[in-house]
Design a protein around this nucleic acid. Structure first.
Lengths: 176, 176
DNA sequence: CTATACTTCCCAAACGTTCGTAAGGTTATA
DNA sequence: TATAACCTTACGAACGTTTGGGAAGTATAG
């Protein structure tokens, strides 16, 4: 509900109805709405860490790692669009403390792996910018979907994760 | 205010204070909050159309057009971050009618120009996906700024429009 | 030139509703 | 008997919006 409608459009009463409880009952478990939201976000982000553990295995070449990462990321974001929306909302709201928390506690590790792969694939380029570019191409296609589908040249097949992944990988491998 | 805090976090009373009016006075000009918001969005998007008119001039080569477009877009988004946030909020909220309106009335023309350039630069690739990729790389770097600055490898210079533009252009020209 | 009517702009106050949250009580479990 | 889980009820504040009216400006008529 927070992902779909945003923090202030979801009331404690809405939430309580969704879980078949009285509003007051929620306050038995959470001190206030803000804490409830934060724990929701933490929970939503918690299990995503391990989804990429296979990607960074040592026996893979740098290129393979990149291919696997792009494929997995697009897959993950497609399968769980609410997770994706939640990230977006967090970034749009841009609460400095929470940004720091997200960066350090949740994204840092994966990002470091990606950084090292970038360093190997495109040593002459800035690895931070390269890494962000990888994320850009994966995330943005999906995030723009509601707008994109009304723009010229759109086809149904663009929504298929593997078609998108193929396009992104080709672009990246040539470009980097 | 809508860009910064979102529709439902901005009350008519907040707005009225910001323009030194009574809440009721606003209702002299707008029938309700929703219409006010829609006209705000339209207004914010209206003057952006002409910012790119120089880019698509016929005497430029396709590559030059791409370079100019990327530079202008990054420039524009950097100079007017509120505009950028407003787009994001629109996409996150994803009201179907408004998406259609935004796509047809505001983005279509620019996107068509970009499509034709893509067709010329990378004829063997899907032009829709290519065009979106261009937008991705420009937009996402800026949109992720609050998060990015806490991630490893971040440098101050990454925030400079020309540094970012250079990176994006190199990646695109090689990749496409 | 003045008197009158009409319009535009804006305010204070209040409408009914919904918000986050608190207090206090009731039931089920241990 | 004690604690956890949950309820009903209610509080004050904030919400979007409406009402009724006042001040200022403009147009029309005598």
């Amino acid at each position: 509900m927070f992902a779909k409608k945003g923090f202030s459009s979801v009331s404690m009463r809405h939430l309580s109805k969704a879980v078949n409880m009285s509003p007051a009952a929620i306050y038995h478990y959470f001190p206030d709405k803000n804490t409830l939201y934060l724990e929701t976000v933490k929970y939503a982000f918690a299990d995503k860490e391990e989804a990429f553990s296979v990607v960074w295995q040592d026996n893979h070449s740098a290129k393979t790692k990149l291919v696997l990462f792009v494929t997995s990321l697009i897959q993950e974001l497609t399968l769980d669009p609410m997770f994706h929306t939640l990230i977006l909302r967090e970034v749009v709201d841009a609460n400095p403390e929470r940004m720091k928390m997200l960066a350090n506690d949740i994204f840092k590790e994966q990002f470091c792996f990606l950084l090292s792969v970038m360093k190997e694939i495109a040593p002459e380029k800035d690895e931070h910018l390269s890494a962000i570019s990888v994320l850009s191409l994966c995330k943005h296609h999906l995030e723009m979907q509601p707008l994109r589908q009304h723009l010229p040249g759109w086809k149904h097949e663009h929504e298929q994760p593997d078609v998108l992944a193929k396009h992104v990988i080709e672009l990246l491998l040539k470009g980097l």
